[in-house]
Design a protein around this nucleic acid. Structure first.
Length: 276
DNA sequence: GTGGCCCTGTGA
DNA sequence: TCACAGGGCCAC
């Protein structure tokens, strides 16, 4: 579900509530939500203060005192949020945390995941570095230069869409924003990276940064499940130019947008505006 | 590389 | 009833 803009929005909206708060209680209602034994998970969290809330790629990260890191990958339907008073845990609420603010008041934090693909873990930095997914994450797209991107694409086989979805190449892009960035860059999703001119890679780099920044400004995209750290939906789904618009006219040239499958994912593009 | 799989819900 | 869904991993 959440790609970089959604995770960034979750981190920003959680920060105000979570930073400075202490994990007082951890209720594990379903162990599917954990990548490690529940006892160790709870033991490591209990009594620990949250220093900051951030992310790396699509991974949500809470920096804790004692050098521990709470890492949460929401995958497709995961949510980590501070519930409204009338929101009670249901069958999909797998973790219920109780946090204590510096002023002594307590509040709940829910981890909910309908499809159970997501998971949380608490690690030391050394342990985190041993986690292959984390250790091999590519650069942050918003902190990457056009030359960085060009260098990363230079010797890649396969189609550009599949390459951009690879978190080892760039961290944080998913199905929505790859399609949107390729449209803005005028590049067909089945183009071969090595065949792209320097100029077109620069245009792609610009398109990636532009679409991610706009999506963050819009607080992410809510198709069905995504909500931020306070349970609110995003708005960038209203600005999609290709994602979910197969068969509809291109916003630029009116040509009907085409649907294809690339890297096992539904892909939408304009056969006129986007070229190999 | 591609396809299947993990899992549940939704909409055609 | 079936196809499909913001992801990532593993076996062909």
């Amino acid at each position: 579900m959440p790609e970089l803009p959604e995770v960034e929005t979750i981190a920003r909206t959680l920060a105000g509530d979570l930073e400075g708060a202490v994990f007082e209680n951890i209720e594990v209602r379903h162990i599917c939500a954990l990548e490690q034994p529940p006892e160790g998970f709870a033991k490591r969290l209990r009594g620990r203060r949250i220093l900051s809330v951030g992310r790396r790629g699509k991974l949500l990260l809470l920096l804790l005192d004692g050098g521990y890191l709470f890492a949460c990958h929401l995958r497709m339907t995961g949510r980590l949020y501070v519930p409204q008073p009338d929101d009670t845990p249901d069958n999909h609420t797998h973790l219920v945390f109780t946090l204590r603010r510096p002023d002594g008041r307590t509040f709940p934090l829910f981890y909910r995941d309908v499809r159970k693909f997501g998971a949380c873990r608490v690690h030391t930095p050394e342990e985190l570095a041993c986690w292959p997914f984390y250790a091999t994450l590519g650069p942050e797209p918003l902190a990457m230069s056009a030359a960085d991107l060009a260098a990363r694409l230079a010797n890649k086989r396969g189609r550009i869409k599949a390459v951009l979805l690879d978190q080892k190449v760039v961290a944080g892009l998913g199905n929505i924003y790859v399609d949107e960035a390729l449209f803005r860059a005028g590049i067909r999703p089945d183009a071969i990276p090595a065949s792209l001119s320097r100029k077109r890679v620069a245009r792609l780099h610009n398109a990636i940064q532009e679409v991610l920044q706009e999506a963050i400004a819009g607080c992410g995209s809510s198709i069905r499940d995504y909500v931020d750290g306070r349970g609110n939906a995003g708005s960038f789904q209203n600005s999609f130019r290709v994602y979910g618009r197969a068969g509809q006219p291109c916003t630029v040239c009116n040509t009907p947008l085409v649907k294809a499958t690339i890297a096992g994912r539904t892909t939408v593009y304009c056969p006129h505006c986007q070229q190999k």
